[in-house]
């Protein structure tokens, strides 16, 4: 279990996150949604150990996060950050290799890199220089690197900050399928998504943040309501449903005022 209790993050008197609870279990896909500046990335960074909290506690598998060494954390959770700037001319396959545990044989490393590149649909571009790729391709390579870490270390938790932001429709669906596969194999997935339809499709639980506060959480069918969306974004829409879950059409939106 990855648990946040009453987490507060404040910088220079500005509160980014206020008393937020969150709990991620193996087998679960959890999506965090909310408007820009709601504190979604701050919460994710706090839960990875990257960002120090000013209050509350975060526990990974029953131990406070700060008890874990950096190396031990890397064998329990893998993280895809929002934007990654690579400074030197790495090849795609080299970036993915960085995710792999050190003490594997060259043959095992090679197989894992292959598998990760196939999983993110980048296997034909393994010899390309990373800097020459498009935004969506870069995002998939980074996810491939994260998957290589998950598979080589056996990480339980996968934490993704807007993994679909630069992707086309088919690759958005691919990422959601990878997230579900990870959960089915006993892992827990925490991801920030802006697209409410994707979140509703992919997640077992949705947590909605606004102004650093958790304002709703639960199954998509319970959270995705006209009122919540109005409260989150100030936009009135009509949420509809199909047997698989709720969805909304932006065409039905009415902006306030």
């Amino acid at each position: 279990m990855l648990v946040a209790r009453g987490v507060t993050v404040a910088i220079k008197g500005k509160t980014l996150l206020q008393d937020v609870d969150l709990s991620l279990s193996p087998g679960q896909v959890l999506a965090i949604v909310g408007p820009n500046g709601a504190g979604k990335s701050t919460l994710l960074k706090a839960m990875t150990g990257e960002r120090k909290t000013t209050g509350g506690e975060i526990e990974l598998d029953g131990r406070a996060l700060w008890h874990w060494t950096t190396a031990a954390l890397a064998s329990r959770r893998a993280v895809l950050a929002q934007s990654t700037e690579v400074v030197f001319p790495f090849l795609v396959s080299e970036i993915v290799t960085l995710g792999i545990r050190r003490n594997l044989t060259a043959a095992e490393q090679y197989r894992l890199v292959q598998r990760a590149l196939v999983a993110v649909d980048m296997s034909t571009m393994s010899d390309r220089v990373y800097g020459t790729l498009s935004g969506g391709e870069k995002q998939r390579v980074q996810l491939g690197r994260v998957l290589a870490q998950v598979w080589s270390h056996g990480c339980t938790y996968l934490m993704l900050d807007e993994p679909t932001s630069s992707l086309d429709l088919s690759h958005q669906l691919l990422i959601l399928r990878l997230a579900r596969e990870h959960a089915l194999s006993g892992g827990g997935v925490l991801m920030i998504l802006h697209d409410l339809n994707l979140a509703s499709m992919a997640a077992d639980e949705i947590v909605a943040l606004k102004d650093g506060n958790r304002i709703a959480s639960g199954a998509p069918v319970d959270v995705m309501t006209d009122d919540l969306i109005a409260a989150l974004y100030g936009v009135r829409v009509q949420v509809r449903g199909v047997p698989d879950g709720p969805f909304l059409l932006p065409q039905t939106a009415r902006l306030p005022g």
Partner: peptide
């Protein structure tokens, strides 16, 4: 250093102090 080349936060996530 390889890990650091893809970012300070990324290197931390990969287990580098």
């Amino acid at each position: 250093l390889d890990a650091l080349a893809i970012g300070e936060a990324e290197a931390f996530h990969l287990g580098v102090d």
